[in-house]
């Protein structure tokens, strides 16, 4: 039972927590974490060499926890703007279920634990990359870029693109061109994915004072940039086949998927300013999630089939 001096209770804001374990899991951004784990797994599976399966699983868990830690640090810092956006107002910190101090401690402890575990169980190159990813997301993106430039998610997207590089490094101990191609694919995927969301959620971002591209440069410029990035993404998606570390079947899948991305981006580009429902933007947002998942699944399948000698 807690013992508290009554006279200090109001001054210190002391309270007994009603936070459930689920609130701390929510701080880890499980949906983002699942994407991180998946892309890191593909990086790990694509890397040359056969890692110890147990160490590979522990490495993936460490990468997942590292991603979760950066999510917790993001929610600690962004509680003020999360509170005014409908999409994020129910998060544990703005909703008052977890205090900012608890979220900060949780994020910092998990950061240290995940980086040290990856360093000890895999290697320190992968651990350094994971530490850089957490730093980039929490400090460079969340604390600096997000509130200061409409290019926030372009540069900040590097943090979300690093997990396959970390996965690759966990096996090889090095950073290679193949890992960087996987990085490039996610890096180019991030802007059209988030700008599609920002188009139909621009009111939310405006209320929170976040300079997302649609609020700063306007919808027309955003649509154009989405289309340009879609073209670059479609080309980068087939690079693994062109460079020879994925097969022809993957190349065909990547071309079809890239074509779909360009098509849906074209629909967004043609979307009239008067369209308040913004269905094409919503469709592109949904398709972008499917695109990344299927593309990386195709890479994985290609590697597995090649391992069994079923494709060249």
């Amino acid at each position: 039972m807690a013992l508290v001096e009554q006279e200090h209770m109001d001054d210190t804001g002391y309270r007994l927590s009603e936070a459930a374990p689920g609130d701390f899991i929510a701080l880890l951004k499980p949906r983002v974490m699942s994407l991180v784990v998946f892309t890191a797994f593909v990086g790990l599976a694509m890397a040359p060499g056969v890692p110890n399966p147990l160490l590979a699983m522990i490495s993936l868990a460490a990468i997942a926890v590292g991603a979760g830690a950066s999510g917790a640090l993001n929610m600690w810092y962004d509680a003020d703007i999360d509170a005014v956006m409908g999409r994020t107002a129910g998060r544990p910190v703005p909703a008052g279920r977890v205090t900012p101090g608890e979220a900060l401690s949780f994020g910092l402890i998990l950061s240290v634990l995940s980086v040290s575990t990856l360093g000890l169980m895999a290697n320190w190159t992968a651990a350094a990359l994971l530490a850089f990813t957490i730093f980039f997301y929490a400090v460079i993106y969340t604390m600096w870029l997000k509130r200061s430039t409409p290019q926030n998610i372009v540069i900040g997207g590097a943090a979300g693109a690093l997990p396959p590089v970390v996965g690759w490094a966990a096996v090889t101990g090095t950073v290679s061109i193949e890992g960087l191609v996987l990085f490039l694919i996610i890096f180019l995927w991030t802007p059209p994915h988030f700008w599609a969301l920002a188009l139909f959620k621009s009111g939310d971002y405006e209320r929170a004072g976040i300079p997302m591209l649609p609020n700063v440069a306007g919808h027309a410029a955003t649509k154009t940039q989405i289309f340009v990035y879609a073209l670059l993404l479609a080309v980068s998606g087939i690079l693994p086949a062109v460079m020879g570390f994925a097969g022809l079947a993957y190349g065909v899948v990547a071309t079809i998927l890239g074509g779909g991305f360009v098509w849906y981006s074209w629909q967004v580009l043609r979307m009239p300013e008067s369209d308040v429902s913004m269905k094409p933007a919503k469709t592109l947002f949904g398709y972008s999630l499917l695109y990344l998942f299927v593309l990386f699944t195709a890479l994985l399948a290609d590697r597995l089939l090649a391992g069994f000698g079923l494709v060249s």
């Binding site: 039972m1 807690a2 508290v4 001096e5 009554q6 007994l16």
Partner: peptide
């Protein structure tokens, strides 16, 4: 010093 116990709900 007077102390008050906080009874958790």
């Amino acid at each position: 010093m007077d102390k008050d116990f906080v009874k958790p709900t």
